[in-house]
Simulated scan of single mutants.
Amino acid sequence: MQLPVMPPVPPMLAKAVSGMPDGALSYEPKWDGFRSIIFRDGDELEIGSRNEKPMTRYFPELVEALKENLPPRCVLDGEIVLVGASGDRLDFDALQQRIHPAASRVKLLAEQTPAKFVAFDLLALGDDDYTGRPFAERRAALEKALAGSKAPVHLTAATQDKATAEQWFQQFEGAGLDGIVAKPLEGSYQPDKRVMFKVKHERTADCVVAGYRVHKSGPDAIGSLLLGLYKDDGGLASVGVIGAFPMKRRQELFEELQTLVTDFDGHPWAWAKQAEGERTPRNAEGSRWSAGKDLTFVPLRPELVVEVRYDHMEGERFRHTAQFSRWRPDRDPESCTYAQLEEPVNFDLASVLETGRPQAPSSP
C-alpha cells in the first residue's frame, strides 16, 4: 500500500458544546458506531479504528463493499454502523459483538448482522493529500468520489443551514443517532485534535445506587457507582455507572456508603453472588471489551437515589457513562422507574442514510 496518507492515522475529534454553534460551518448527523478511517490502494484495503488498530478482519462484508464503491486509491474518514433487527434504528450493542476473536464467528456475524459504512470526510484521493485543504473542498471532492456508490456505503447528510441542523437534532435521534457534529468550512483535517464541535442530547434521570466499585488507587476510595432503574415487573435493572469524582470526594463517598454495604442475600442483584469476582450486573461487561479489568462490585442496600445526566438509552442502559447531577434524598427508590425517561419519536433510519447520497453526474 502506497498512499499520500498512510495508516495509522488518529481521526480528527470534536469538543462538546451546549448549543448549536453559529458560523461558517457544515452540520452533520452524529453517527453512533465505530469511527474508522478507510485506506484503499487498489486491491489493498485497511479499515482503521479510533485506537489506530486495524478492524479489517472483523468486517469482511465491508471490505468487499468498499472495494466496489470507493475510488481505486483513497483515504476516507467515516463511521461503521449497524442497523438493528427492527430495521429502523442503529444498534451499537449488536455492533460491539462484531469484534470477535474467532474467524468462524466473524464470518457468521458478517452474514447475520452486516454493517454499513457512512463516509463524512476525505483525507486523500489518488496521489493528492487533502488533509491541508479546507473542509468545504474536501466535502465537494467526497461527494464527487462517492457519486456512484451504493449501500452499504453511504455519504452522510450535511447542511450549512443551522435551522435544518436543529431540526435534524430533534428528528434523527429517533433513528438512533447521537446528535450533531459541526465542522468549520475553512478548517483543515487535524488528526487527534478537537477542532470540530458536537452537540449531544442531555437528559436527567433519578436512579437507585445499588453498588460500587473501588478505585484503582486503593480500596478506600470509590471508583464508580452502579445505577439501577425499576422495571414494570419490580426487578431492578442495571442501567450504567457514574464515576467522575475528585479524589477527595471518592474517599468521602467510600466512608459515607459503608452504612449501606450489604451482602448479595436479598439484594436485587443477588444472582451476581454466583459470579462474584467475574462480572457485574451487566453480563456483557464481562466480555472481551473489559478484558483484564476488575469488575467486582460491593453491593449496597438500594436506598440511595441520585439524579444523573445522560444523552440517550441503548436498550435498557445508558449508551454512555452518565454524569452526576445531585443527590435526591426526597425521592423514594421505588419511584425510580423507566417511566420517567423521555423517549425520542421514531424516525426512519433509511431516510437518514439516503439524505446525504449524492446524485451521479447526468449524461451529456
Rank of each mutant, 00 (worst) to 15 (best):
Q2W: 10
V5A: 01
P7R: 09
P8E: 07
P10G: 03
A14H: 08
A14Y: 10
P21N: 07
P29N: 08
K30N: 11
G33Y: 01
R35M: 02
I37S: 00
I38Y: 08
R40E: 00
D41W: 03
G42D: 07
D43C: 11
I47C: 00
N51P: 02
P54Y: 01
P54W: 01
A65L: 03
A65I: 00
C74L: 00
V75W: 06
V75F: 03
V81L: 14
G87R: 15
L90K: 05
L90C: 05
R98L: 11
I99E: 06
I99N: 04
P101Y: 05
K107G: 13
L108S: 15
Q112L: 15
Q112F: 15
A115V: 04
F117V: 03
A124I: 01
A124H: 01
A124N: 03
G126E: 04
D127Y: 06
A136F: 04
E137A: 08
L142W: 09
E143P: 06
K144I: 14
L146A: 09
K150S: 10
P152N: 01
V153I: 14
T156A: 13
A158R: 04
T159A: 11
A163V: 12
Q167S: 08
W168F: 09
W168C: 12
F169P: 10
F169A: 00
F169Q: 03
G174P: 03
A175W: 09
G176L: 02
D178M: 15
I180D: 05
V181P: 13
P184A: 00
E186G: 11
S188G: 15
R194F: 03
R194T: 04
F197S: 09
V199C: 01
E202K: 06
T204W: 06
V208T: 10
R213W: 02
K216G: 08
S217V: 13
S217Q: 12
I222C: 00
L225H: 04
L229W: 01
G234H: 05
G235W: 05
L236F: 01
I242P: 01
G243Y: 09
A244P: 03
M247H: 14
K248I: 13
K248T: 13
R250E: 09
L253R: 04
L257F: 07
Q258L: 11
Q258R: 14
V261N: 00
T262E: 08
T262Q: 09
G266V: 12
P268T: 06
K273W: 12
E278M: 14
A284D: 13
A284K: 14
G286R: 08
G286H: 06
W289Y: 15
W289R: 15
A291D: 10
D294N: 09
D294H: 08
P299I: 05
L300C: 00
P302I: 07
E303D: 13
R309C: 12
Y310V: 14
H312I: 04
M313Y: 11
M313K: 10
R317A: 06
R317W: 07
Q323N: 15
S325W: 14
D330G: 07
R331D: 05
D332S: 02
P333I: 06
Y338W: 05
E342K: 15
E343W: 12
A350W: 09
S351Y: 06
L353K: 00
Q359M: 10
P364V: 06
